[in-house]
């Protein structure tokens, strides 16, 4: 599935990184401790987190993640938005919590 399809299906709000929405999403990872994400998230994952500071962009880019979904309506810092635009890393915001997002993604067939 493409990032843009995921965006439509989950009714995500695109905050930044629009140029990356044609990337492929193969799986997902959920976590807020960056070292755990670094160690365990697989490439082409959609990453669900409540972290929204600029370092999430570096983590996602270094791991070739597909996109970042910031859960629970957490606001995304301005410098995070700038960096994500620069890197073409889509960041979405959703009012759903991480669990609800994961359930919906599973329903869409994302393993």
């Amino acid at each position: 599935m493409k990032v843009r399809e995921l965006m439509d299906q989950l009714e995500l709000f695109l905050v930044a990184g629009a140029s990356g929405v044609d990337k492929e999403v193969k799986t997902a990872y959920m976590g807020d401790m960056l070292s755990w994400v670094m160690a365990n998230a697989q490439q082409n994952s959609a990453w669900i987190t409540i972290q929204s500071h600029i370092n999430i962009v570096a983590v996602a880019s270094l791991l070739n993640l597909s996109c970042i979904i910031v859960a629970e309506g957490a606001s995304v810092d301005e410098d995070t938005v700038e960096k994500a635009n620069e890197e073409g890393m889509p960041i979405f915001s959703s009012d759903l919590n991480s669990y609800r997002l994961a359930v919906k993604m599973a329903e869409l067939g994302i393993a």
Binding site: W36, Q51, H53
Partner: peptide, 12 residues
Amino acid sequence: ELGFGAGMGLPN
């Protein structure tokens, strides 16, 4: 609070 300090840096 920013998600660092999990004690995983050196092990990673």
